[in-house]
């Protein structure tokens, strides 16, 4: 094998500290999928258009296909695998189930994480705010209506939990 230079990565993935030696050119998506086996993060367009590979870095949605792994050095990454706690689904995950907000499921991890970022920033978004925030996440199966309903429902549910 080539003696590629390596980079010592220290990061937090789904609440757990991770240390790794990686090639500097390693993309975050490949680090997650191939190095850590976290295959819930999906690859599609490879150019930050479709949103399938979205993960949250310090709570903000990021396209892992266009992010180098070293960029998350000393940051916190949340992937779809880190959402459910003790087998209990996050309210956003449950809302996608309840509203049939998925079919093939390929865009779903990115949709769910982007929704969490939206509701974190804006707990009571109106429809146009939802559509605008999620317009960077493509879905070819649902026609988006059920996803819109899932986001509305999640927003209501989270508001109830707050009160």
């Amino acid at each position: 094998m080539n003696a590629q230079p390596t980079f010592k990565l220290t990061t937090t993935i789904n609440g757990k500290p991770v240390d790794a030696e990686i090639e500097p050119r390693t993309l975050l998506i490949d680090f997650l999928r191939e190095y850590l086996g976290l295959t819930g993060t999906k690859r599609s367009c490879d150019m930050q258009v479709c949103g399938s590979c979205t993960v949250l870095v310090d709570g903000k949605p990021v396209s892992s296909c266009s992010t180098l792994a070293y960029e998350v050095n000393e940051h916190e990454v949340l992937t779809i695998e880190g959402l459910a706690r003790n087998g209990e689904l996050h309210p956003v995950q449950q809302a996608f189930l309840d509203e049939y907000g998925l079919q093939c499921g390929y865009c779903t991890p990115g949709m769910v994480l982007t929704t969490i970022a939206l509701l974190d920033e804006n707990p009571k978004p109106d429809d146009s705010e939802i559509k605008s925030f999620l317009s960077g996440n493509l879905c070819r199966c649902t026609g988006y209506f059920p996803i819109l309903n899932a986001v509305r429902r999640a927003s209501e549910k989270l508001a109830q939990e707050e009160s």
Binding site: R33, L38, T39, T41, K42, I80, A84, Q94, D98, V112
Partner: peptide
């Protein structure tokens, strides 16, 4: 009826071809 594949798809557990190593 709820989708029987729903839970595995919202948790990232559902395996697609490129997920298999």
């Amino acid at each position: 009826a709820p989708r029987v594949d729903g839970p595995s798809k919202v948790t990232g557990e559902a395996k697609f071809t490129a997920d298999i190593r």
